[in-house]
C-alpha cells in the first residue's frame, strides 16, 4: 500500500475504544443474556439441571436444533428462508434407511447418496427462488410439502410401514454409527458427539461470516441485493450456496438422529423448520436479512434445549414450551427492530 501520490497522507486509524457500546451492538447479546437467565433459573429451581447428567440431556437436546439454527441463520442473513429444512432432516435419514435396510446398499454409499440428494434439493430451492424472483417463503413451502408427501408415501410404498426398523442389523452399521451417534460418559452424564458437531458447525459458520469473502457477500446479498450486484458480488452463487449449506446441515442432523436411535419415522422433522427460524431470530437475525450471527443462533438453540429439558426437570406440563418460545420470539423481534432502526436510521 503506497499513498505517495497524495498530498496529505492520513493518520493511522483512530479506532476508538468503546468496548461497552461495541458489545451492546452485537446481534447475539440478547440471546446471551436470555441464555444465562434461563440457565440460572433452572439451576436454582431444579436440583438436576446443573448436574453433569442434566447438562448431558439439555446439550443433546440443543445440539441438533443448534446445527440447523446456525445454517438457517446464515440463510436468513442472506435474506432467504427455508421451510423445507425440517422435513429434509427426515428425508435424508429415510433415504439411508430405505437404501440399506430394503435394497441392501452399502451404508456408506447410501449416506453419500443421501448427501448428494440433499444438496441437489438445496440447489433446486435456490435456483427456483433466484430464477423466478418469488419469495423463498413460498418456494420452500412448496418443496416442504412435496418432500413431506414423498417421505410418507414412498416409505409406505416400499416398506409397507411408516418407520424404518432394524437398522442395527445392516452390514457395517457399527463403522458409521460412532461418527454421528457416539456418546461418552462423564461423571453421571451422557454426552453425545452431536454436541461436538454443533460446536464445529457454529465455529465454521462464524469464521465464514466474519472472516471470509463469502461471509461479506452473505451480509451483502441479504442487506441490499441490488447494491451487492452493482459492486460485483456473485449474487446467484452466494444464494444457491446458502440453500445448499442448509440442505447439508439437514443431512448432518438426519444422520445424527438416524444413528443415535437406529430408527427413523416417516414424519421426522415436520414442523421443526419454524423452531430453527425462532432460534435464529432469538439469536439476533433480522427477518429482512443482512444482519445476524451464527453464535447467536447457537445460543438460541441452547435456550430452546435448556427450556425444553428444564420444563421436564421441573415436572411442569411440557406444552408450556411452545408458549415460552412464542414469547421469546416476540421479545427478540422487538429487540431486533430497535437495533435496526438505530443502525439503519437515516434510510
Amino acid at each position: 500500500m503506497t499513498t505517495t501520490d497524495i498530498v496529505t497522507v492520513g493518520n493511522r486509524p483512530r479506532l476508538e475504544n468503546r468496548p461497552l457500546r461495541k458489545i451492546l451492538g452485537r446481534p447475539e447479546i440478547g440471546a446471551l443474556v436470555a441464555a444465562l437467565a434461563v440457565m440460572l433459573f433452572f439451576s436454582v429451581y431444579t436440583s438436576t439441571f446443573m448436574t453433569l447428567s442434566g447438562a448431558g440431556v439439555w446439550l443433546e437436546s440443543a445440539s441438533t436444533f443448534g446445527i440447523m439454527a446456525v445454517a438457517v441463520a446464515l440463510l436468513m442473513i442472506g435474506g432467504e428462508f427455508d421451510l423445507s429444512a425440517g422435513v429434509m432432516t427426515g428425508f435424508t435419514a429415510l433415504v439411508v434407511g430405505i437404501l440399506t435396510s430394503h435394497y441392501g446398499l452399502n451404508i456408506w454409499v447410501a449416506a453419500v447418496i443421501s448427501l448428494v440428494l440433499a444438496l441437489a434439493i438445496g440447489a433446486i430451492n435456490g435456483l427456483l427462488v433466484m430464477k423466478t424472483g418469488l419469495p423463498s417463503f413460498i418456494v420452500t413451502l412448496g418443496t416442504f410439502f412435496v418432500l413431506a408427501g414423498i417421505d410418507l408415501a414412498v416409505t409406505k410404498l416400499i416398506t409397507g410401514q411408516v418407520a424404518i426398523q432394524g437398522m442395527t442389523s445392516v452390514p457395517f452399521y457399527d463403522t458409521i454409527q460412532p461418527l454421528f451417534g457416539a456418546s461418552i460418559q462423564i461423571g453421571g452424564g451422557t454426552f453425545y458427539v452431536s454436541v461436538l458437531w454443533w460446536f464445529v458447525a457454529t465455529a465454521i459458520a462464524t469464521w465464514v461470516l466474519l472472516r471470509t469473502r463469502a461471509g461479506n457477500w452473505i451480509f451483502a446479498v441479504g442487506g441490499e441485493l441490488k447494491s451487492a450486484r452493482q459492486v460485483g458480488v456473485p449474487v446467484l452463487r452466494t444464494k444457491i450456496g446458502l440453500f445448499m449449506t442448509t440442505a447439508a446441515a439437514a443431512w448432518l442432523v438426519g444422520m445424527i438422529s438416524l444413528f443415535r436411535t437406529s430408527t427413523v419415522q416417516a414424519n421426522t422433522g415436520v414442523g421443526q423448520e419454524f423452531i430453527y427460524i425462532i432460534c435464529a431470530v432469538v439469536g439476533g437475525c433480522l427477518l429482512t436479512g443482512g444482519f445476524g450471527s451464527a453464535i447467536g443462533a447457537a445460543l438460541g438453540a441452547l435456550i430452546y434445549g435448556m427450556v425444553f429439558q428444564g420444563i421436564t426437570f421441573a415436572q411442569w406440563d411440557t406444552n408450556w414450551l411452545r408458549t415460552f418460545l412464542g414469547a421469546m420470539l416476540l421479545l427478540a423481534v422487538f429487540l431486533n427492530h430497535f437495533v435496526r432502526t438505530r443502525a439503519g436510521g437515516s434510510r
Binding site: 469464521w207 472472516r211 471470509t212 469473502r213 461471509g215 461479506n216 451480509f219 451483502a220 442487506g223 441490499e224 441490488k226 447494491s227 451487492a228 452493482q230 459492486v231 460485483g232 458480488v233 433480522l286 443482512g290 444482519f291 435496526r340 443502525a343 439503519g344 434510510r347
Partner: peptide
C-alpha cells in the same frame, strides 16, 4: 450509491473486491 446500510463502512468500502491473505481453507479477510 450501491452501499449496504447495515454493513460497516470498511466492509462496504471493499465489498466485491476484498483483500485476503492465507491460502486454501485459511484464506481470510
Amino acid at each position: 450509491l450501491a452501499v449496504i446500510p447495515l454493513m460497516p463502512v470498511w466492509r462496504n468500502f471493499f465489498l466485491g473486491s476484498e483483500i485476503t491473505r492465507g491460502v486454501g481453507p485459511f484464506r481470510r479477510l
